[in-house]
């Protein structure tokens, strides 16, 4: 019962936050795409591409980087400024790119 309650609660959050692809696109353009590209990364880049990746995975990874439960000098800094809403938008945007 508790679990159900939590998941309903989560669902309502995500629909309230109705992750905007446009907001995600503009955030990704200024925060992520410099290194990770939009559809692909540079042939020379050491960074993983984000396009088409699983949305939930992207959200989890970004939260971990932000909260410093996953350590990376550069990602902890860059994700540090993102709100939950930003993270949802970005994950939603990148997961839809092909």
């Amino acid at each position: 019962m508790k679990l159900l309650f939590i998941s309903v609660f989560l669902l309502s959050i995500s629909s309230v936050q109705a992750a905007s692809i446009y907001a995600g696109k503009s955030k990704a353009a200024v925060v992520c795409s410099q290194c990770h590209g939009v559809r692909t990364t540079s042939a020379e880049a050491p960074f993983p591409p984000l396009a088409g990746r699983d949305k939930e995975y992207l959200k989890m990874a970004l939260r971990q980087y932000r909260d410093k439960t996953r350590l990376s000098e550069i990602m902890n800094n860059i994700a540090g400024s993102l709100t939950d809403k930003d993270i949802n938008n970005i994950a939603n945007y990148y997961s839809r790119q092909k």
Partner: peptide, 16 residues
Amino acid sequence: IMTGSFETLMPPFYGR
């Protein structure tokens, strides 16, 4: 140098 400069051609050299 690490992050590059947004809105220019300066790329991120972190990891490179």
